[in-house]
Nucleic acid binder design. Structure first.
Lengths: 123, 123
DNA sequence: CGGCCACCTTGGACGAAGTCTAAAGTCACA
DNA sequence: TGTGACTTTAGACTTCGTCCAAGGTGGCCG
């Protein structure tokens, strides 16, 4: 646990939003000016493998990092402005995939992304 | 409808798999050597806005294009090799998102991505 | 204390994917 | 044939991410 890693963890923990790697880097730089992009990417990668943080790929642009990894949830994305909300649908999509539709895969995980238009963009 | 657009449409229609823009370009070049990358991107973009083709962003790498846009379906992705299968789960995830979880959004669409390991990679 | 080794960080180069732009080509139609 | 609208092209450019070699840092053991 180095100063750099602590800073990255703090940035993610501080704001419960979905930051891009670049945004994490900017905020990390504010706390520790010499931190490099490579270190931020490395640290984010480690946090992801440790299961502390989730990668979210809601749009084709940059990956986003979701510090809320311990509470299972899905995402609601604004098609217009890209805003992301965590949501908790009822039901279990894993149970909705019959064996005949699994093609022999060992299915371990499911991601649900709702798309729509947020109140701001609708106005 | 120009020769270039016809070729792109043929490539997508010919193979019911999920191609990246680059793969579409390579196959299009085989049929029409002078077609440019920009044209392929333009045409894919138009097909997407027309609703003829779906963009799929299952991994962080290249977008993939799914010609099977008229039959609603979701995707099963191999975490190891990236293979993608179309699947048809039972149930309607849109109905599983209560109003209280919609944050005022007008929700129009939902994408479900199952992740697992395919039989090939498991062996 | 001093040396050694493992690991971390840095900065810049590199690569992949996609977008943009200016110029040239093509087509319908009067 | 001339005109204007639209398309295509090639390549430059941007963005996002990864890689790598060099240097730094700290722990540990003698």
């Amino acid at each position: 646990m180095t100063a750099q890693r602590r800073v990255v963890a703090e940035v993610l923990d501080g704001e419960h939003v979905h930051l891009t790697a670049d945004e994490v880097h900017s905020r990390a730089v504010a706390k520790l000016p010499e931190i490099s992009r490579a270190t931020v990417y490395n640290t984010l990668g480690e946090l992801v493998s440790l299961g502390e943080v989730l990668e979210v790929a809601t749009d084709k642009r940059a990956k986003r990092y979701d510090p809320n990894a311990h509470r299972p949830h899905h995402h609601l994305v604004c098609a217009r402005c890209g805003a992301i909300k965590d949501v908790h649908p009822t039901g279990n999509p894993l149970a909705d995939l019959p064996d005949s539709e699994r093609f022999g895969f060992t299915v371990s995980d499911v991601e649900v992304t709702y798309r729509g238009v947020c109140p701001n963009c609708a106005a």
